[in-house]
Write a protein that binds this DNA or RNA. Structure first.
Length: 281
DNA sequence: ATGGCAGAAGCATTCTGA
C-alpha cells in the first residue's frame, strides 16, 4: 500500500501535475500541504473521477491540508483536539489550517504542515515551537487511545545535518536549529520511526529545493518532508523513497513527493470487506 | 548583509514561504 506526502504549494496551480503523478504512481493515500484554498474552492472532481475520496481543511492564500484516499477516511478530524495536557492555548492555532487526520486501514493518518518559523529571532519561530509542543500533547492523547499512527507532512525541520546539502552554512539556523530538533524529538518521543532512515543512512537525499539560485539544478536541497510511523508498524515497512522528478517539472512545487510502501496484513484490511466503504464509480 | 523565486490577492505592490 503506497502512502505519500507532497507539499504542492497551491492545489490550483499544481492540479494537472498532481493528477499526472497520481496516474503514474497510483498512491493509496496522498497527503497534501499548502493547498492555499478554502474548502469550497478545493477542486475535488479531478480526484473523485479517479476513484479517490477527498478530505480538506483549508484557508485562503496560506496553509491548507488535504487527504486524498482510495478508501473513505473514518473519523476525520480537523485541527488539534483532545489536547488536555497541552500547556498552549489551542485557540491560537485554530485559524491556521495545518493539520487534518483520519483513520484508514485501521491507522490514523495525521497530515501536518508545520509552521516555517521564518528566523530564530521571529515571533513566528516561537509560534512554530509552541505548535510543535501542542502536536506532542495531541499525539500523547492519540497514544492513550492505542491508535496506530502514520504522522506525515512538511515538518520544515531537517532532523540531522545529513539532511542538509551544506550543513556548515545552515546548521543552527532556521529548520536546522537545536530548538527545532528538540521540539521534533519531543513530538516523536522514540515512539515513531523515520521511515526514510530505515533504508537510507547517507546524506544527499532531499525533499525540498529553494526556487532561488538554481537550487534544484545544483541539487542543493534539504530533507524536511517526513513520514513517521508507529514503531508497531515498522515490520510492515517495505520501502521508502523520495520522487524528486516532479521538482523538475515546468512550474513545479518546490517540494517533491515522499512515499512509503506498507505491507498491511489481512487483520488491518478486514474493515474494507464491507462494500459500503468503497466508492461507487 | 541582501537578494534571488514563486503564489495569492488584486492591479502596484505587499505578504508569505523556507
Amino acid at each position: 500500500m503506497l502512502i505519500a506526502t507532497w507539499n504542492v504549494n497551491s492545489i490550483r496551480t499544481r492540479l494537472t501535475q498532481i493528477i499526472d503523478w497520481i496516474n503514474q504512481v497510483h498512491p493509496d493515500v496522498l497527503c497534501l500541504q499548502e493547498t492555499k484554498v478554502t474548502d469550497d474552492s478545493f477542486p475535488c472532481e479531478p480526484f473523485s473521477k479517479l476513484g479517490y475520496f477527498v478530505e480538506v481543511f483549508g484557508q485562503k492564500s496560506y496553509n491548507g491540508v488535504a487527504i486524498i484516499s482510495k478508501v473513505k477516511p473514518e473519523n476525520v478530524k480537523k485541527g488539534f483536539y483532545d489536547c488536555t495536557d497541552c500547556d498552549q492555548n489551542i485557540e491560537i492555532f485554530q485559524n491556521q489550517k495545518r493539520l487534518i487526520s483520519g483513520e484508514i486501514y485501521g491507522i490514523r493518518f495525521i497530515n501536518v504542515y508545520v509552521p516555517n518559523g521564518s528566523s530564530l529571532e521571529s515571533d513566528k519561530f516561537e509560534y512554530k515551537i509552541n505548535w510543535l509542543s501542542c502536536l506532542a500533547s495531541f499525539l500523547d492523547e492519540q497514544e492513550k487511545k492505542g491508535e496506530l499512527i502514520c504522522l506525515m507532512g512538511d515538518f520544515n525541520i531537517a532532523p540531522s545535518n545529513l539532511d542538509i546539502h551544506d550543513p556548515k552554512k545552515y546548521e543552527g539556523g532556521i529548520m536546522a536549529s537545536k530548538k527545532e530538533r528538540n521540539a521534533l524529538n519531543n513530538v516523536l518521543k522514540g515512539r515513531f520511526i523515520d521511515s526514510f532512515r530505515i533504508f537510507e543512512k547517507s546524506t544527499g537525499h532531499w525533499s525540498w529545493w529553494d526556487y532561488r539560485n538554481n537550487a534544484y539544478e545544483l541539487n542543493k536541497g534539504w530533507r524536511i518532508d517526513h513520514i513517521y510511523i508507529s514503531r508497531e508498524l515498522s515490520s510492515k515497512l517495505k520501502s521508502s523513497v523520495i520522487d524528486s522528478l516532479p521538482r523538475g517539472n515546468l512550474r513545479p512545487s518546490d517540494h517533491a513527493p515522499v512515499m512509503i510502501d506498507l505491507d498491511l496484513d489481512d487483520a488491518n484490511l478486514d474493515f474494507f470487506e464491507d462494500d459500503d466503504n468503497f466508492l461507487e464509480i
